[in-house]
Computed example of a mutant assay.
Amino acid sequence: MLAATVARFSPDSPLDGLEVTERPEPAGREHWTTVEVRAASLNHHDLWSLRGVGLRADQLPMTLGTDAAGVTPDGSRVVVHGVIGADGHGVGPREPRSLLSERYPGTLAERVAVPTANLVPLPDELSFAEAACLPTAWLTAYRMLFGAASLAPGDRVLVQGAGGGVATATIVLGAAAGLEVTATSRSAAKRARALELGAAHALEPGERVPARVDAVVESVGQATWGHSVRSVRPGGTIVVCGATSGDAPPAELTRIFFTELRVQGVTMGSRDDLAALVRFCARTGVRPVIDAQVPLSRVGEGLARLAAGAQQGKIVVLP
């Protein structure tokens, strides 16, 4: 079967380590199911894997990808929850927590094997391409807003870096839930798009927010951290799911303890969270924003667009 793999590590030029090549079919395993992938989507995790983060040389070649939607052998439509070992289903009680493409081959392939308990039914209201956007970026946004930050209609949230997958998902989900969303971006086009997607305000990075927010969704890191700390109200929450611009020196600890801020990390969510998100989208008509769709054979084009930060929303890969 065709798959996109990390063939070698390339820290400075990650796409140099990418190979789209034939790989063995997934091996059968008790309590696991092989899914025919109809659509997958890209995440920054794929670029970090190509740089060598989270993988060892003896694991190569490793199939990339954490997100997928497809069909099981009995014809059921499913979304794949990409966290392995969180509940012990199908992997044993001592299985360390990981994402697909870290210990087990990922979803950027024609077929992928996952624990059967990781499969979430896909309703007919959602397409495979839409569903493939949900398990990482949209699930993370959902949990950040309604789990970690516990936001309610009328609350204010600041979303840093409006073009990314998590940020775009946060804008759409937040607006649908009645939050007052403020988004930032260096790009005037992305700020305009954020307003179209439901943001109440769109600012340049570092620009003063109209009012202190109840929570900040932070996925950028070093470039925006100081602004995030200054923009949240006393007692508010900064929810962190990534650091695409690098780690964040200084941490501004004085402001954090003086204003009693809470910093909460989030990586994706549970299978139940994903099932709730799928139902939310099916019932409300909210749909993931798809920036582009590329065939698996040209996945390098999608990864290059992601690496350049040129996308607005998710990049979908079609095997």
Rank of each mutant, 00 (worst) to 15 (best):
D155G: 07
T107Y: 07
L277V: 13
P24K: 12
T184A: 06
I290D: 00
A131C: 11
R305S: 06
L296C: 12
D67N: 12
R255N: 13
R8D: 11
P205C: 01
G163V: 05
A243V: 01
T259S: 09
V78S: 07
E102M: 10
R271S: 05
A109M: 02
A113C: 09
T33W: 07
R94M: 05
V299L: 09
P121H: 00
A137T: 08
M144R: 14
V6W: 13
L64N: 08
E22K: 00
P123I: 11
E260P: 00
W48V: 07
T254V: 08
D273Y: 14
L306C: 08
R94E: 09
Q264Y: 00
I171L: 09
V239N: 09
H45Q: 10
R23E: 13
R143H: 12
P234A: 00
S127R: 04
E125L: 07
E30H: 08
F9H: 05
L50S: 06
E218R: 05
G28C: 08
R191Y: 07
L203A: 10
G90E: 06
S270E: 12
H201Y: 09
L261Y: 05
A243G: 01
E125F: 05
L158C: 00
D273G: 11
L253W: 01
V220N: 13
L134K: 11
A307R: 03
E19F: 03
P73S: 10
H31N: 15
P93G: 07
P115Q: 02
P24D: 10
S101K: 06
I290E: 01
S13K: 12
P61S: 10
R279H: 04
V6Q: 15
V181P: 00
T33V: 13
R97W: 02
V294R: 00
G85L: 06
A162F: 10
A39K: 12
V278A: 03
V114S: 04
S101A: 15
W32S: 14
R56E: 10
A69G: 10
D67Q: 05
P250K: 04
L197D: 03
A39S: 13
A109S: 08
G90K: 05
